[in-house]
Design a protein around this nucleic acid. Structure first.
Ligand SMILES: [Zn+2]
Ligand SMILES: [Zn+2]
Ligand SMILES: [Zn+2]
Ligand SMILES: [Zn+2]
Lengths: 160, 160
DNA sequence: GGGACTCATGTAATGTTATAACAGCCGCGG
DNA sequence: CCGCGGCTGTTATAACATTACATGAGTCCC
């Protein structure tokens, strides 16, 4: 699984692929990818960064799609709930999912310099967490795993 | 390392030991454990749960130790910065550190039923995260690791 | 002792993030 | 037509957090 976020890429694909994947999954599961929800997902994919709910709301307002906080929060709740986006707790912000195919347990790598957020494969980390939790009899439902540090690009700049 | 938080214990010890440990470390490092800071730590130890900054502020206000948000936030910043307390990002709340002896990289287990928060040993998890991050060239400074689920006590209730 | 400095605190004002509550709309099955 | 569930529009407010500036206590140097 590719961490994304730290490497150049054809960004048009991010958007079209992300929306297409969400579209397909919604059709498959009987969910409604309404105009607001679709647009919020597009905005997140377009900007390709962690955005606050109010940042997104600004976009929506400019486009006449809603101007009050609940509009943005409801769309974000839907996207997060169904795995099309994630909330970054540390930033109180949201990112489009980089791997919208099926279930996954992501680990986020947050650069403190350029604020980019990469979504990485969390399987080994989840395994370790499950082990840790089982020792105290705790049953994990979901988890928040976020690392803060320097991305490869910003490390270069600092190394000199 | 004991996860704490899910098992009965002599709670007076939590408080006196926690404050004593902070006191010793402050003396050793030349930090000032001022009345407000000490009192906030005591409150966190006393309540033994994740508390919002405004919950703490209420206590302080009742005791005439400060009534404005910055008073609570400054004390909490100090405690968190020096490892005497932790912020739970998922809850926007704070807990006293359960293992105030030296550096550590905790994993938090948050019960969605009773809201208790246990602090568990994160070494294996951090190892897994370091491996994951290194694959993409990311250098981790700090990390947020929080699991949400059911604690042993609440599991029993649900199992029936 | 006075002056400059640092660190902690007091307080007002404000900024940011998130939710509650209720009204209206629309598509669908009865 | 009617009721119902899901989505949206809007107002208001709750919850969380910071900026900015003033004050006071201790320390260092002279
Ligand atoms: Zn994802
Ligand atoms: Zn970076
Ligand atoms: Zn701790
Ligand atoms: Zn519980």
């Amino acid at each position: 699984m590719d961490p994304l976020g730290f490497s150049p890429h054809n960004h048009d694909h991010c958007i079209s692929d992300g929306v297409a994947a969400a579209d397909a999954q919604c059709r498959a599961k009987g969910l409604q990818l309404t105009p607001v929800r679709r647009r919020v997902l597009e905005i997140l994919l377009q900007e390709h960064r962690a955005m606050g709910a109010y940042d997104i709301l600004d976009h929506l307002r400019n486009e006449g799609l809603g101007s009050q906080p609940p509009v943005a929060y409801r769309a974000l709740d839907f996207l997060v709930k169904h795995g099309f986006a994630h909330k970054i707790e540390r930033l109180n912000a949201f990112v489009a999912c980089a791997h919208p195919e099926g279930d996954h347990a992501p680990v986020f790598l947050i650069c403190r310099d350029c604020n980019s957020v990469a979504e990485s494969d969390g399987r080994t980390v989840r395994k370790a967490m499950a082990d840790t939790a089982s020792q105290s009899g705790f049953a994990i439902d979901r988890s928040v795993v976020e690392a803060l540090g320097l991305c490869p690009n910003c490390r270069e700049g600092h190394a000199e």
